[in-house]
């Protein structure tokens, strides 16, 4: 197990290094000039040269890559060409915003998947309806779900907010996670308001992954519930619900866990759209603005962070699976 974990750790380092190289190289191909983006159109030639030196663009490529790599390891992701702030500072508020949303979306996806798969496994007319829901919801793009949510729950019924993260401003000592902030400041109102703001974006981002997960879980449950051990459990007088809970879900969880890691990575791409619809000031809106402004430093930093999260998440899932299933280690 230790050797498996070390092998996975080594592969994570390799993949992240390759990712850093790819992200860096992409910024160097083409004929884009980041200096004008940084100092503006009206700058003189002298000011352009001064800014080029300041940004380290006169250095040899290898030096630039080394600086990029060592800076990233130390948390220095460079200067944003559009906001002109340290990217690490820019991301210090946006990363928690995205993590909070992603966490709630993932939580919603898992709960939805378990509920849908469990109901489907019990069979009957409801299961047939749910199969239809599986197919239709899985094909609904996140922005469509987001807009429908806004139209129904904000405009028509006035139940949930349509934008932002809070109605009450930000605490001076905010952790960046507003639900936690509310709890830390003993304000249930603040926490509930933050949850209210989270519901629509989390559902929009988590619906498709939840349904995809449910389909995998449902297939696994179908196989489990018709397996010999399930028949034995029935013969011993256990109820369907108990068999589902004790045996079915446990045996069907391995492929679902693998799928969860994949879906978590894919969900990040949908967050770019969802954050824009809900004016959610996270990595997604930051990335979209950076792309629009040609702010390559910011694009590279966000891409690297998202890539690392994705790679680490997948590695953790592999290690977790290996811990519970020896076939994974041997494979």
């Amino acid at each position: 197990m230790l050797s498996f974990t070390l092998r996975r750790l080594a592969s994570v380092v390799g993949v992240v290094l390759f990712l850093a190289l790819a992200v860096f190289a992409l910024g160097k191909v083409g004929n884009a000039d980041p200096v004008r983006t940084y100092i503006g159109a009206n700058a003189s030639a002298e000011q352009v040269e001064q800014a080029r030196a300041e940004l380290g663009l006169d250095d040899p490529l290898l030096t630039q890559f080394w600086n990029f790599l060592t800076g990233a390891v130390q948390g220095d992701l460079g200067i944003s060409l559009s906001t002109k702030h340290a990217i690490a500072d820019d991301l210090s508020t946006r990363l928690p915003a995205t993590l909070e949303l992603a966490g709630w979306a993932l939580g919603f996806a898992v709960i939805l998947a378990v509920v849908l798969a469990a109901v489907a496994a019990l069979g009957g007319k409801v299961a047939a309806v749910l199969r239809f829901v599986f197919f239709s919801a899985a094909s609904a793009p996140a922005f469509l779900v987001a807009m429908l949510g806004v139209l129904v729950f904000y405009q028509a019924w006035g139940l949930l907010p349509a934008s932002g993260r809070t109605s009450y401003g930000v605490y001076d000592d905010s952790t960046g996670f507003y639900v936690i902030d509310g709890l830390l400041h003993a304000s249930p109102l603040y926490a509930a308001d933050a949850i209210g703001h989270l519901i629509l974006p989390a559902v929009a981002a988590g619906l498709a992954p939840g349904v995809a997960l449910a389909r995998v879980l449902s297939d696994g449950l179908g196989a489990s519930m018709s397996s010999p051990f399930a028949r034995t459990a029935r013969a011993m007088g256990e109820s369907e619900t108990t068999i589902l809970r004790r045996h079915g879900l446990r045996n069907a969880s391995s492929p679902a866990l693998s799928m969860l890691a994949v879906q978590a990575g894919l969900m990040v791409s949908s967050l770019v759209v969802v954050e824009q619809v809900f004016a959610w000031n996270g990595l997604g809106t930051y990335l979209a603005n950076a792309i629009a402004a040609g702010d390559f430093n910011a694009i590279a930093a966000v891409s690297l962070i998202l890539g690392v999260v994705y790679v680490v998440l997948n590695a953790l899932v592999e290690v977790a699976l290996a811990a519970v299933d020896p076939r994974v280690r041997l494979g």
């Binding site: 019924w157 139940l159 949930l160 400041h185 249930p188 209210g196």
Partner: peptide, 23 residues
């Protein structure tokens, strides 16, 4: 869904404000 959202909204209205940020 409507009831759940309404419950959350009502709950938010009636919850103690505690310490809120100064805007």
């Amino acid at each position: 869904l409507g009831l759940a959202a309404a419950a959350l909204g009502l709950a938010a209205c009636q919850l103690p404000a505690g310490e809120l940020p100064e805007v």
